[in-house]
Design a protein around this nucleic acid. Structure first.
Lengths: 246, 246
DNA sequence: CATTCCGTTTAGTCAGACATATTTTTCGGC
DNA sequence: GCCGAAAAATATGTCTGACTAAACGGAATG
């Protein structure tokens, strides 16, 4: 008995034509967004495996594997007999790339976006400082290429956004700190979603190139203090732009 | 044919008596540590599911669910026919609590510990500053209680370490920034493992209480700058202690 | 009234079959 | 002899159904 009266998107259907994700991934995405968006509240109990799997029209194994993914990300916890419950937000791995993606797949929570920008404002200037102190020849080459790309294309184009990403990536690599790289990459990606919203809403209000060049020059000069200050300014401007469009 | 010539710990046996984790968790832990410790290098291919599951003496479903966990944490990627391969370190979610635990379950990599301390030195002072600016009555109460607990017990006791954790937790809560809380909690836990090593190696070289009191007083006074400076000092001292024992 | 025991419920594990997607091989044609 | 397309091989992905184990609730018992 497929196709019952569910208004929610059907993971099976979505997997069949849309994303290209495997079935298990589609179910995980479906449940993940349902939880992160608050449609299923913390403390709430999910329907039993057999029933829930049947409701989603997938086998129990596929459903279970999806739940394992959620468990791995700290969203739910399963105990025999008690069922699987949604954990309190404090246990969620909010910095996991998938969780971030799920959080931004719908209407992102304003407060959470603020938190992320705050974290970014803390981490990225420090990263720029470290980059200025540690960059080697390859790092400089990558940054130079990225800046050149940004000169050629505006942020409205795919190529322009790619160059922007490359630039920030190059800075992170230059810190030679794996933990910092992992963290910043996640945040930057998440912030990227919001940036896209921003640009859709209105033409971008200012040319971001000079800000980036300032950061670049400071890192080339090996001036950590200046690099940190320039990056702080860059993040603040990005925050202003995003806020003015919300 | 159980008990073949494998020197590595047997996940099934470990699950049977030791950790209390479910079988799938034990397999995930086994594979996770094998990968994080470098025993299985990035780019390498894991043995086929049927063979590998049989070698570990677990069913294919249990093995697969364990692999899903690793996939969720970015350690491996599975593609039909091509098998499942270990991803490059850059794709790992190094800040995931489980991954950190796996990384510290054996001999932790010195370079990675340095990276974590560096990140901590960036984030925690900033967190202290925010806490000083935003703490409410409940936050102050929790911090006060933690400090009192630290006065009563030394860091050598369980109660003392719990009080220390509570203090840092209270500071994070006071920032009212969920992303910051998630991040710092992970790092602090990981750094905690190393601290334990440190104390096992030698009597702790100095009384950490005055440093904590300084942070506490600054936050109570609402002085963000002082709180940040005091916390920076605290982290630096912790780093010194850890380094001198390695 | 407290305690213990047993049945029920739900997740956990197992086994084997079939589907799907690549890679590799092979075979035909140019 | 080289190149390209079709077929075979192989590993992951999904499905099904059964059984196990653990935890909760209530009944029976002291």
């Amino acid at each position: 008995m497929p196709q019952q009266r569910k208004s929610e998107p059907d993971p099976r259907g979505a997997a069949r034509h849309g994303t290209g994700r495997r079935l298990r991934g589609a179910v995980a995405h479906y449940l993940g967004t349902a939880i992160v968006s608050g449609r299923i509240a913390p403390g709430e109990r999910l329907a039993g495996e057999i029933a829930h799997a049947a409701a989603l029209d997938v086998s129990r194994s596929a459903y279970r594997e999806a739940v394992q993914v959620l468990t791995a990300k700290g969203l739910v916890e399963s105990r025999t007999k008690a069922g699987t419950r949604v954990l309190p937000r404090s246990r969620w791995n909010l910095l996991d790339p998938d969780v971030l993606a799920w959080a931004f797949s719908g209407e992102p929570d304003i407060g959470f976006v603020r938190d992320l920008f705050e974290l970014r404002a803390i981490v990225e200037p420090a990263a720029a400082r470290l980059a200025a102190e540690r960059r080697d020849k390859d790092d400089l080459k990558a940054m130079k290429a990225a800046i050149a790309g940004m000169r050629r294309h505006t942020l409205g184009t795919d190529a322009g956004r790619a160059a922007d990403r490359d630039f920030h990536d190059a800075i992170l690599q230059a810190t030679h700190n794996e933990a910092l790289i992992t963290l910043s990459a996640s945040i930057a990606a998440a912030v990227g979603w919001t940036t896209q919203f921003k640009q859709r809403a209105r033409a971008l209000p200012r040319d971001p190139l000079p800000d980036h060049v300032r950061v670049h020059d400071a890192i080339v000069a090996g001036d950590g203090e200046a690099a940190s200050a320039a990056m702080r300014l860059l993040v603040e401007l990005a925050l202003d732009d995003t806020q003015s469009s919300m």
